[in-house]
């Protein structure tokens, strides 16, 4: 499965995603430059974490205007897999590829800490390889991760089962104490209606190797590969 990792000016988890895909998952990967207007032959595009364009205005607000984002929108519309992590999630929201918006954390402080995620759906390309019932331990690191959707959007998210990850306790209870940033309904990650675009605030690439203290993040990448292999097995591409 071929991955592309977008590099915006100010991306700083691009190399981390690249490392995990190449060295841990052993899949082909290349960087995609923000100024390019086309997506080359890849099966999944990753929008990595960081501070694109410094995020001085609002996280992701400038990056959405990059030439590559028009191409990413087209890629997604054609059913391509898109994974936005942290700043990548923020960019997907700003670009309108996912509903809702990010506000600053309720603590008004940047927060880097482990979180436990309840997996709400196992039938997405991003979660199909997660063992059922397993709560994932994946760290966050952000200042603007307080997810908000208006009541209508929220109803739609629920109706369409678009919430994929919620902040939870270690044993999977979705309770206010487990919410690290004030996110509505403890939302940590959502997909679009078609299910091929996922945005998540936690960083799966930071916990994909045992030496770093956890491997739960691997499930997200392994799900993508499993999904893609299954799809490839289903018929000609």
């Amino acid at each position: 499965m071929k991955f592309g990792v977008v590099v915006f000016p100010g991306s700083n988890c691009d190399a981390d995603c690249y490392w995990v895909i190449e060295r841990v998952l052993r899949q082909p990967v290349r960087y995609l430059w923000h100024g390019d207007g086309e997506i080359p032959d890849v099966d999944c595009v990753i929008l990595p974490g960081g501070f694109s364009y410094g995020d001085y205005l609002r996280a992701g607000a400038i990056a959405r205007f990059s030439p590559i984002m028009r191409a990413v929108a087209q890629f997604a519309a054609n059913g391509g897999l898109v994974l936005g992590i942290c700043n990548g999630f923020q960019i997907l929201l700003e670009a309108g590829l996912l509903p809702g918006a990010m506000r600053p954390n309720d603590s008004l402080r940047f927060r880097c800490c482990p979180t436990w995620l309840k997996v709400e759906r196992y039938d997405t390309p991003f979660t199909c390889a997660v063992p059922r019932g397993r709560t994932l331990r994946i760290p966050i690191a952000h200042f603007e991760g307080n997810y908000y959707a208006d009541p209508q959007q929220l109803r739609q998210l629920q109706r369409e089962r678009q919430v994929v990850f919620r902040y939870a306790t270690r044993d999977g209870r979705v309770v206010p104490e487990a919410n690290p940033n004030g996110s509505l309904d403890n939302i940590a990650g959502i997909v679009n209606r078609a299910g091929n675009v996922l945005g998540m605030m936690p960083h799966p690439e930071r916990c994909a190797e045992a030496v770093l203290g956890g491997e739960d993040g691997r499930y997200v990448f392994e799900s993508l590969i499993a999904y893609w292999q299954q799809k490839a097995g289903d018929g000609p591409r």
């Binding site: 700083n12 988890c13 402080r109 940047f110 927060r111 880097c112 760290p139 960083h203 930071r206 770093l212």
Partner: peptide, 19 residues
């Protein structure tokens, strides 16, 4: 001191083995 270091991204670059 977690009040301090939780405000710092201490994991980016995926090298931090001991937090």
């Amino acid at each position: 001191k977690s009040w301090v270091w939780e405000q710092y991204d201490h994991m980016v670059q995926v090298n931090t083995v001991v937090l």
